[in-house]
Nucleic acid binder design. Structure first.
Lengths: 210, 210
DNA sequence: TAGATTGTTAATCGATTAACAATC
DNA sequence: TAGATTGTTAATCGATTAACAATC
């Protein structure tokens, strides 16, 4: 990785996946190069911002030419860490959990799903995407053996605290958090990415109401 | 509604649902009042920010006392527009769509789900939460009759553009967008709230990789 | 070479934090 | 009244945009 400076602001980081996606689109259209100006028009940003963002990590362009699309996408992938797959487990195999396990390709986003857990005994033994659903009793043993890096929390809010605490103690360093529980206040050193659907829908509600 | 000034920044708006949630928690613990200082500790913010945020909309506190929890939650609910239910339709009844329709209470977030559509003929006639799944052929007629305000897009990315365009022409003013397609560039006047799961997971990947 | 476009510095804008008078 | 805490103004900080010299 090519980080110039260590601390890149989270505003910049959150734009990287979107750059990655747009560059992928351009690539699949068979295009080779693009200027920051053209890309900015496409994405609804300023060219300045794109250049600033990229320069947090290195010099990927060429004066007078622009950026090589394939190269730039690969570089952003490397920066994001997509190339080195990390191990993820899913806690909670309800509708949301199953939907993620079955229809969401995590391997192109840096993760390998290696285990699924649910506290409901009736689910134990079922398989989703060739992975058996384990009982929660086996979580401890499984984590000690397989050392997952990240856990996807698709459980009711009331269970989030205890499950998260157990997982942190078992070495899990990040959560993809679908519960309505705020893990980041409690575990400031752990990486948490929240998918707070309620918050998102309420924000939409506000905007539509205006 | 009590908006002092018209244009409240989106940074502020995006914090409102979280305030609403924390106030609900406090309420369910039977508490009556809280100061901005106490709330800031709980939420991991500064007291200043909380007071600044709230003062975009009115004066809800009392010097020397703090804020009445129940009252403040209600006020924030009103500001967000949760009290007046808007009509939503769901496009795409795959795993994600079904999970939302079955396990996500939209009525507490300002929306009423009034229709479900899927292009797959085999799903037509099935019901989810007492709502029949309609064929996409019926979308036009349904919208003219029922005038939905918002559409939840749980469809493949390739279909997003056409479906969204049709819905905008039918009067839909907002999208809860689960596709990996950027609607906001194309429809700048329409409210779009994106749930880009891929982007979210990649961001987590970056943070874990550091 | 001339034109285009980068990388980077400087200027602007907006958001967060600090401070404090007003007041319950 | 004295203590607490708001609402609000001023100061700071960070992020975005503009400008331009460097250079392909």
């Amino acid at each position: 990785m090519n980080n110039k400076s260590r601390n890149v602001s989270s505003s910049v980081i959150k734009r990287l996946p979107r750059y990655h996606r747009f560059l992928g689109d351009l690539r699949s259209k068979g295009l080779d190069r693009i200027s920051s100006k053209e890309l900015s028009n496409l994405m609804g940003l300023t060219a300045s911002q794109i250049r600033q963002d990229l320069n947090c990590f290195g010099e990927f362009g060429q004066q007078g030419y622009g950026y090589n699309i394939e190269l730039l996408q690969q570089e952003i992938g490397k920066i994001l860490g997509l190339t080195k797959l990390k191990k993820a487990i899913l806690i909670g195999a309800g509708h949301m959990g199953k939907a993620l396990a079955m229809h969401f390709d995590m391997t192109t986003k840096g993760f390998n799903l290696i285990g699924i857990f649910d506290k409901k005994p009736s689910l134990s033994g079922q398989t989703v995407q060739n992975l058996p659903i384990h009982s929660m009793d086996r979580l401890d043993e499984f984590c000690r053996e397989n050392k997952p890096d990240m856990a996807i929390l698709c459980i009711p809010r009331g269970e989030a605290h205890n499950v998260a605490e157990a997982l942190v103690n078992l070495g899990v360093r990040g959560f993809w958090n679908f519960t309505h529980y705020d893990l980041s206040v409690e575990f400031p050193d752990i990486c948490v990415e929240n998918v707070h659907l309620s918050d998102s829908l309420m924000t939409l509600c506000y905007n539509i109401s205006q």
